[in-house]
Design a protein around this nucleic acid. Sequence first.
DNA 1: AGCTCTTATGAATCATTGA
DNA 2: GTCAATGATTCATAAGAGC
Lengths: 296, 296
Amino acid sequence: MEMNDYTAEFQHGDCLEILRDFPAGKFDLIFTSPPYADSRLKTYGGIKPDEYVGWFLKRAEEFHRVLSDMGSFVLNIKEKVVNGERHTYVLELILALRQQGWLWTEEYIWHKKNCHPGKWPNRFRDAWERCLHFTKRKDFKMFQEEVMVPMGNWHKNRLRRLGENDVIRLDSKVGSGFGKNIANWLGRDKAYPSNVIHLATECGNKNHSASFPLALPEWFIKLFTREGDWVLDPFVGSGTTCEAAARLARHSVGIDIVREYVDLARSHASQYSGMRLLDKTATYGKTKRKRANGIH
Amino acid sequence: MEMNDYTAEFQHGDCLEILRDFPAGKFDLIFTSPPYADSRLKTYGGIKPDEYVGWFLKRAEEFHRVLSDMGSFVLNIKEKVVNGERHTYVLELILALRQQGWLWTEEYIWHKKNCHPGKWPNRFRDAWERCLHFTKRKDFKMFQEEVMVPMGNWHKNRLRRLGENDVIRLDSKVGSGFGKNIANWLGRDKAYPSNVIHLATECGNKNHSASFPLALPEWFIKLFTREGDWVLDPFVGSGTTCEAAARLARHSVGIDIVREYVDLARSHASQYSGMRLLDKTATYGKTKRKRANGIH
DNA sequence: AGCTCTTATGAATCATTGA
DNA sequence: GTCAATGATTCATAAGAGC
C-alpha cells in the first residue's frame, strides 16, 4: 500500500489554546460548525446566547492568525429560537467579526432538503442554515470549476440545432439589455452553482450523526483549496470536515474540547487509507508520525 | 357582475406621512419589499447603505402603530455587495427593529430558482433573498393549512410500494422518527412547507417588472390573513402585493413615493373584477368610493 | 402523458471613467 | 483620493407549444 502525502491530525483541547502552537498563515481553509449557543448549560459546548459573541471572538482572533492571506473561513451556523424569537447572536457575530478585520464576503445558504420533521403552531420546519464566508482580503483563492454540477439534459437537445435567435437575443421586445449567447454553451456539460447549496442531511448510518453531511465541507474544500492544502476545523466534532479533506487529498487538523469526539474522529479518519494520522498528543512542529491504525 | 366586499386603495407619497392618517391596528399584514440600499443616488429610491437603517426605522415606527396586535410584518430584502463585501445594513436593521419593539420571529428564505445571470471571479450568482418575519407578540395569527403543498410523486411512488414492514424497517433504521412521520403521511395528499420558499422570479408580461413574483405575497397573505383582512404595502411599486391581496379577497392599501408606480399599480388593480378601487386622493375615513375603471 | 423544441427572463457585479 | 455615474458582461432554468 502506498502512503500519500497528506495527514490528518487531531488534538484534544480548546482551540483557543491549541492553535497558539500553529504558525501564522498555515491554513488555506477553516471550515467549522461551532457549538451553537444554547441556554441549557448542560448541553455539549453549551454557551449561553448572550455570551456567545465574546466567546467566539477570542477564538476567531486565532483563526485569523493561522489563516493564510488568500484563504477562506466558512462558518456553518444557525441561530436558535429563544423565547419565541430568532436570537440575534449570529447577526452580532457577523458585525463583530468585521470589526475584528474579517471581510464578510458572502453568505451561502445550505438548503436542507430533508430537514427534521416537526410541527409547531407558529413556525414551519427549519430547512436552512447559514454558511458565512469570511476572508482576509478581497482577492482570495476560489476555484469555481471544481464545484460545477452536471447540466440537465435539456441543453444537449438545445444545442443540436442553433437557431438564429439563439446567437443573439432579440432585445427588440423591451430592450432590457441582455444578449444571450447560446454558443457559450457549446462543449459544456457542467454548470456553475449559485450561492444556494441543496444537500440532504445525512441521517443515520454513522454512530454519531454529524451536524452536517460530508458533502457540505467537501463543497467548500473543493471550492477554496487545492490538493495538498491545509484545512482546519477547530470544532471538529465527529470529524466530518477532516474526513472530507482526506478524501480530497488535503491535509487537515481537527480540534475538539470533548475527548470522545476527538477519539471518534480519529477512528473515522483511520479508515481512510493513505492518510497519515498524527498522534493526538503531538504538538505542531515536533509531531511523532504514527502509522494509521486499522488500515487494511 | 357582483361587487365583492374588498377594496384596493392606492396613495401617492411617502408612507411616513401617508400612514399618519390611518388608525392604529388597522392592518393584519404588512408585506413589502423596500427600495434596497444603493450607493447610486439616481436610482429609484436609492438610499445610501449607511443611511438606510435610520431612514427605514422612522417608517417602521408607523408600521408598528398601524399593525394589529396579532398581525405580521414581512420584509423582503437582500443586502447588496458593496466594495466586494456583503453590506451589513440588513443585519443592523434587524437589530434596530428589535430595539424598536418588534419580535424577530422568523427568517424565511426565498430561493430564486432563476436568479440574475452573471459570472464573477470570486462570487456565484445570488439566488436567495430574505423574508424577515416580524411580529408584535408571540401569539400572532398563522394559518398553516392554507399554504400546504401537494406532495410530489416522490412520496406517492414511495408509499405505494411501501409495505408495512418497509415503514417499520425505515423507522428503525433511521431512528430519528422520520419513518414514523412517513407512516403518518399515508392517506394524506398535502404537506406543510418549510421556511424555504422556492419560486422563480416570473414577472411576466407587464411593462414594469415587479421585484418579486405574485406567488410570494400570495404565500404570506394566505399564511397570515383571512378573507376580508387588511393588507398594507408601504412601498408598493407596481402593485404586486395588492394584486395578490385582491385575488385572495383581502382589502389592501398600497403606497409609493413614485407617482408612476401608483398609477401603474392602480391600473393593474382595476383589472380585477370585484375590487372596489378607492380614489387616490381619498384619505382614510372619508374615502369616495369609485367604480373600478376598466372592469369588463 | 411523455417527448422535443422554442421562448422567455431576471432588485446583479465589477472595472472604468468622470467630477 | 473619494465619491458618483456609466457601461460591459454575464446563466441556467422554467413554462409552453406542438407532436
